[in-house]
Design a protein around this nucleic acid. Structure first.
Length: 293
DNA sequence: TCCCAGGAATTCC
DNA sequence: GGAATTCATGGG
């Protein structure tokens, strides 16, 4: 991998195991728009970023080397060795071969804790396009304008201070429905310090989950998503309808409880559970895997 | 009209 | 203690 700063843009050359479209569209992230094939605009980390991929080269437009080193290298997980991860998973289990081969370019983004917490509380029992819409509305109304592209304005994800001021009624105006009180409770607990990034970072998995589960509306699945996407805990294994379906199809050949799948994933995939989960999730959803009967 | 969505809380038995 | 129902909202 070679990094070059040319005028105002940053060029990353010869990057392996990365596909921009797959990484953004695999379901881990909601604040992006496709501009062209292999070209996207992303809102993350209080910044607006236009990115383009041409084969194994990636261009981050209007980005300095220091922003890359301070923000984007970590965000895109570029200093992680996915060749090693995929080899480990495939050696462990060739049942993952189709998913990993098909979704070879997914990287797990290192996203902001509070944004992921709020987003995945909203996500429950919703389809991805609608989640995107609500998070964009939320940002437009309560975030800060961080830039324009093609005449369109973009807004950062709101801070906990600004969302903490909202009432249940104000959340309902964003069409979050029954999740409104959950969002109020999440903000309250982040502000009063009972559920924070810093606190959870010091805990083992079991205790970290317990802390997240204190929030109303955060159950096992959302807690695992927060751990995986918002706290970079790559051994987490969120089990939603798609994961349940594909695990039943690949491993069990019959209807199986989430508890049983959770225990199996922990034993079987260990510290790489999160990667396995994301390859499987994206593959299952993209191929419209159906319930096992 | 009915069914489902990157679920979780509540109620029922 | 596990299974069924309820919770808003939008889309197919």
């Amino acid at each position: 991998m070679i990094i070059k700063e040319i005028e105002n843009d940053l060029y990353i050359e010869e990057i392996e195991d990365f596909d921009l479209g797959q990484t953004l569209e695999c379901g881990q992230c909601f604040r992006f728009e496709k501009l062209l094939d292999n070209e996207y605009i992303i809102v993350a980390m209080n910044k607006l970023l236009r990115v383009k991929q041409v084969q194994k080269n990636v261009i981050l437009y209007n980005t300095s080397l220091s922003d890359y080193k301070n923000i984007w290298e970590k965000y895109f997980d570029f200093n992680n060795d996915y060749k090693k991860i995929k080899e480990w998973l495939l050696l462990k289990d060739n049942k993952l071969e189709d998913a990993i081969t098909s979704k070879y370019g997914v990287r797990l983004l290192n996203q902001d804790f509070f944004e992921i917490l709020i987003t995945f509380i909203i996500s429950q029992n919703k389809q991805i396009p609608h989640i995107k819409h609500i998070v964009n509305q939320l940002s437009e109304q309560y975030g800060s304008k961080i830039g324009e592209y093609n005449g369109k304005s973009y807004y950062s994800f709101p801070t906990v201070e600004s969302l903490g001021k909202l009432s249940e009624v104000e959340f309902r105006e964003l069409k979050v429905g029954f999740r409104a009180p959950y969002l109020v409770d999440a903000c309250k607990k982040v502000i009063d310090g009972s559920v924070t990034n810093e606190l959870i970072a010091t805990k083992n998995n079991e205790d970290a989950l317990k802390i997240l589960l204190q929030i109303k509306g955060v159950g096992t699945k959302v807690a695992h998503c927060v751990m995986l996407f918002g706290l970079s805990r790559r051994d987490s294994f969120p089990i939603d309808v798609w994961i349940k379906r594909i695990m039943e199809n690949i491993y069990y050949k019959k209807e199986t409880s989430k508890e049983e799948i959770q225990t199996f994933a922990k034993e079987h995939f260990g510290e790489y559970g999160g990667y396995a989960q994301q390859y499987l999730f994206y593959y299952a959803r993209d191929n419209k895997i159906i319930d096992y009967e």
